[in-house]
């Protein structure tokens, strides 16, 4: 299995949440470990690789408890976000996830440059900008939801979550493209 496919699989595992009671069946930390092992199998000199590896390691450890503490109260009791420690821990993990994505984008762009594939590099660059900008705006605005009325936050929440989901899927699709490029190269 080539490294891009493993990154793809790992991030897909993180995206999909299946809970049996408190326990998450497809635990996020397993997904992050897959990403970490994929990165370890790649060229260490790629730009962003060092950051990506260390972030993947940190989040793999950080995400272990997530599999056992269940969903934060904010998602099980309506849309409004609460201020307990579990919610803050969840949000912190999401931000670390963003850092991981940031480095992964760098790795991808450097890899495609080395391959001399300008098309896919440009595509990656475009998604990188939108992905990052949207996430930063979302994460910066999210905490305001504890202090402003529900009828304002709920529609914003829905729009924001939809945008994030679309971007997350676009990222996965992009990784699949890399996987195919990689395969083509091997077969050539």
């Amino acid at each position: 299995m080539n490294p891009f496919y493993r990154i793809f699989g790992g991030l897909l595992l993180v995206l999909i949440d299946i809970h049996l009671g408190q326990i998450e069946v497809l635990a996020d930390f397993i997904g992050y470990l897959m990403v970490l092992s994929a990165l370890n199998g790649m060229d260490g000199n790629l730009k962003g690789m060092k950051g990506a590896r260390s972030t993947a390691l940190i989040i793999s450890v950080l995400a272990i408890p997530l599999a056992f503490i269940g969903q934060p109260t904010g998602t099980t009791m309506g849309v409004s976000i609460s201020t307990d420690l579990i919610t803050i821990y969840h949000q912190f993990t999401s931000v670390v996830h963003l850092v991981l994505s940031y480095f992964l984008f760098y790795v991808l762009m450097d890899w495609s440059r080395n391959e001399g594939n300008e098309d896919i590099r440009k595509k990656t660059r475009k998604l990188f900008r939108v992905y990052l900008a949207t996430h930063i705006v979302y994460f910066a605005l999210l905490p305001f939801s504890i202090n402003i009325p529900e009828n304002v936050t709920i529609p914003l929440f829905i729009v924001g979550l939809a945008a994030l989901l679309i971007l997350e899927i676009s990222f996965l699709v992009l990784l699949r493209t890399y996987h195919k490029e990689h395969q083509n190269r091997v077969h050539m």
């Binding site: 949000q91 931000v95 850092v99 930063i136 910066a140 999210l142 905490p143 504890i146 202090n147």
Partner: peptide, 17 residues
Amino acid sequence: ISLLIITISWGGNLWFY
């Protein structure tokens, strides 16, 4: 800087709350 802004936003909102 963006990550810093996110942190400040969390801190400020939690403090206000």
